[in-house]
């Protein structure tokens, strides 16, 4: 079987694509990659289909043996990757031979690395997606994180990619003293006091250790409510900022619940969710308020940039 064999799963490595959509009304959240930008770039660099599934590694990367040759790319966090003991850069295409070992280590710039293989990974689609749902134990490889001994086949390895020199770009720098994350206020903002909202937008918040793919828990000035934060449960959106009674914000991420009973102050804008996905425990965030129009225009710019990258690569093919 041509594919990969996991020698060490690292801290949390899962198979993800863009996510499982269409069943939120029965309670199935989308899951999918946390950092959609790095995901798209990885597939673009390899000339893969836009939604080809790949590995998402968290904080401590996996060690992977190639059981067949193939081209691959690493985007997102820098985990000090070594191919057969030799350090390799991210954001460019590398070819691994059969028997080659790729080792990712601790993340030193960002927290999530994306390891994509030309032609994609052969795992069954569950409800239209290859994404791993850890909480619901479905999708990806048996609904769980990857462990030593797991084997995954390539769908159709692409061994000869042309113009390798053009299939690269400058990695992003995620080493920031403070992260600026833009937020759109939501229709439940009136559950909170003016001081609470003011604190949210003017003081820094720290990402706590027990943050995960489901939600980022924040420490900082409490966002005080007027009377209560209990609402009649309603739907959540990606990046929704829930405030429980203790006033400590929780940002809902890829593995979020589809509905929730805490009032929502607003939501992180779609264009900034990939960036937030690269912030980890201990990092400080400052929130900036923007309008829905500004948020949508930022998303438009992000998508344009990506299209530009795809064109730059494909023009030469």
């Amino acid at each position: 079987m041509d594919g990969i064999k996991i020698k060490n799963g690292g801290a949390l490595t899962t198979i993800q694509d863009k996510g499982r959509y269409g069943a939120q009304q029965t309670g199935f959240g989308p899951c999918g990659v946390m950092d959609e930008k790095s995901f798209h770039i990885a597939n673009a660099l390899l000339g893969n289909k836009e939604n080809e599934a790949m590995l998402e590694a968290t904080l401590l990367g996996p060690e992977v043996e190639f059981t067949g040759e193939n081209n691959f790319v690493i985007t997102g966090a820098d985990m000090g990757a070594m191919l057969d003991g030799v350090p390799i850069e991210g954001y460019r295409v590398w070819k691994a031979e059969k028997g080659s070992v790729l080792k990712l280590r601790f993340a030193k710039n960002g927290v999530r690395a994306y390891l994509a293989f030309a032609g994609g990974l052969d795992v069954p689609e569950v409800m239209g997606s290859k994404s791993t749902g850890l909480k619901i134990k479905m999708g990806g490889l048996n609904g769980r994180k990857l462990e030593a001994g797991d084997e995954i086949a390539f769908v159709r390895p692409a061994l000869k990619l042309s113009h390798l020199e053009r299939r690269r770009m400058t990695p992003f720098d995620y080493q920031k003293k403070e992260w600026n994350i833009r937020v759109v206020l939501g229709f439940q903002k009136d559950y909170f006091t003016g001081e609470g909202i003011n604190a949210f937008f003017t003081t820094p918040y720290t990402i706590l250790q027990d943050s995960d793919r489901m939600g980022y828990r924040l420490e900082g000035e409490p966002v005080t409510c007027r009377k209560t934060v209990d609402i009649i449960s309603d739907a959540t959106v990606p990046g929704a900022i829930q405030i429980p009674a203790n006033g400590k914000p929780i940002i809902l991420m890829a593995d979020r619940q589809t509905t929730g009973g805490y009032a929502k102050l607003g939501a992180v804008i779609s264009a900034d969710l990939p960036l937030l996905a690269q912030a980890g425990p201990g990092n400080k965030i400052r929130f900036e308020q923007v309008s829905v129009e500004e948020a949508q225009s930022a998303l438009r710019i992000e998508r344009k940039e990506l299209k530009k990258l795809e064109r730059r690569i494909n023009r030469w093919l």
Binding site: V184, G186, F187, D234, V237, G266, V268, S270, V292, L299
Partner: peptide, 17 residues
């Protein structure tokens, strides 16, 4: 019709069950 982030809207019929 209420805005819920930059990619969703919520249509609320009442604030009761």
């Amino acid at each position: 019709i209420l805005t819920a982030g930059d990619s969703a809207v919520t249509i609320e019929f009442a604030d009761k069950i």
